[in-house]
């Protein structure tokens, strides 16, 4: 990762609009993945794992709350985290497509979680060095949670991959399906470039080798085959610019229905 170069000229802060975009990306990844995980609540394979997945979901929801609250403040239009979570349309969401895919079977959920958790640890670790002090503080707090998440999903990858013939087959199939969605995690656009230039966010492309080596290490030990990268078109649209799979709309319909049916309701 490239640390902001020490210079005598103060680095210009990014435009609020760019920072707003970036904070939505951070918040939406966690909001949507947290929601997907919450779908396991009451359906986990065993009671203990049910609780474990709900715990991770709550961690992610908590992080989403903080990132989206900050996003609302940066935007300055009076929107709080609830307004952003419940009253934006699918095209306004900035999460990557990886997190919005349906939860699938347990192997799919774990494989997706593992790929994201490693990304999360690498990204948050880099964000603790952000020139934006508030962002750095949020990252430091979230990093502790992310380190546990990856311990949990990583251990499951080993058990499923190096488990029975069926568990191996299922988790390998999940990996093969998910892999092409990982390219988006490291595809930097103008917003990322602007944030990286001011030292607010890390250079995404530089995080990839770190992510890949951590992922490969576990997949190798789990006797799983790391799929080949799918080349990304230079102008490929993705979740970061509001291009989502069909699945996000269905998820939002369920997630937003109560807030939209009873605006301003409290309990």
């Amino acid at each position: 990762m490239t640390a902001p170069a020490p210079s005598v000229v103060p680095v210009p802060a990014p435009r609020p609009k760019a920072l707003f975009e970036y904070l939505q990306r951070l918040g939406d990844d966690r909001l949507i993945l947290g929601h997907r995980l919450s779908e396991w609540c009451g359906h986990g394979p065993i009671l203990e794992e049910d609780i474990a997945l709900a715990n991770v979901a709550l961690d992610l929801l908590g992080q989403a709350t903080i990132f989206l609250r900050m996003a609302g403040e940066v935007e300055g239009q009076g929107r709080d985290e609830d307004a952003l979570a419940y009253f934006r349309e699918a095209v306004e969401f900035r999460n990557c497509q990886l997190v919005e895919l349906p939860k699938g079977d347990f192997a799919f959920t774990i494989a997706r979680q593992f790929l994201f958790d490693v990304y999360d640890v690498v990204l948050l670790d880099a964000l603790t060095k952000s020139t934006n002090a508030e962002l750095a503080a949020i990252a430091a707090k979230s990093l502790k949670e992310a380190r546990y998440h990856v311990r949990h999903s990583g251990e499951w990858m080993l058990k499923l991959g190096d488990g029975t013939e069926e568990s191996h087959r299922r988790v390998q199939t999940a990996l093969d399906t998910l892999w092409r969605f990982t390219g988006e995690l490291f595809a930097a656009d103008q917003i990322d470039a602007e944030l990286a230039a001011s030292g607010v966010a890390p250079d995404l492309a530089a995080l990839k080798p770190q992510w890949e080596s951590l992922v490969r290490d576990v997949l190798d030990r789990a006797t799983l085959t790391t799929p080949n990268d799918v080349p990304r078109l230079p102008n490929a649209k993705g979740g970061r610019s509001g291009a989502h799979t069909e699945h996000l709309g269905h998820l939002l319909a369920e997630m937003q229905i109560v807030a939209r049916s009873h605006p301003g309701a409290t309990w």
Partner: peptide, 23 residues
Amino acid sequence: MASTVTNQQAAASPGSAATVTSA
């Protein structure tokens, strides 16, 4: 990433970790 137990099981047995676990 903690996986010591799984690895120890794998190392201690000619079978895979899963074999040990399911046993």
